[in-house]
């Protein structure tokens, strides 16, 4: 499933870029994130809780940042699995200045499996969009 869109951060691009590479800021901003610990260069182990319709469950997974071109773009790959299935996704985030702010355009693919695929596929797009929005709202507030 393709997921794309754009969000705004009320900071200039270099500050926005730095924020999105900062594990502590990310941990605070990712909805349901319980821990984000660095396991290597640009690699993190993440624990998060996710709820989708009637399902909620803990996910454990990896986050990897690559193709970094500060302050204009980077690639983010996320892979997680838990009792209700697995999620695998990746995409490129592009940062563009807009006056004093930053517009973040994202474009990626998400694949889900297990119970969440069987029962929640039609809800995932909406859920992903709202999670992304919450993520940027929290990031903006940091």
């Amino acid at each position: 499933m393709k997921i794309s869109g754009s969000q705004r951060l009320p900071f200039p691009p270099d500050q926005s870029y730095a924020l999105m590479q900062d594990p502590e800021a990310l941990a605070r901003a990712i909805p349901g994130c319980e821990s984000l610990e660095q396991t290597g260069e640009n690699e993190y182990r993440m624990k998060m809780k996710m709820a989708l319709a009637a399902f909620s469950g803990a996910f454990e997974g990896k986050v990897r940042i690559s193709e970094q071109q500060p302050p204009s773009s980077f690639r983010l790959d996320v892979e997680g699995s838990g009792k209700i299935g697995f999620v695998k996704g990746g995409g490129v985030l592009k940062l563009e200045p807009s006056e004093t702010e930053t517009v973040v355009n994202y474009d990626g693919d998400v694949q889900v499996g297990g119970t969440i695929a069987a029962v929640g596929q039609r809800l995932i797009e909406g859920a992903a969009k709202s999670m992304i929005q919450r993520f940027f709202e929290k990031l903006a507030a940091s």
């Binding site: 694949q111 499996g113 297990g114 695929a117 069987a118 029962v119 596929q121 039609r122």
Partner: peptide
């Protein structure tokens, strides 16, 4: 089924 072989009509809601 989606391309990865996930059954996406997995319950009576779908």
């Amino acid at each position: 089924y989606d391309e990865a072989g996930q059954l996406i009509t997995g319950e009576l809601m779908d």
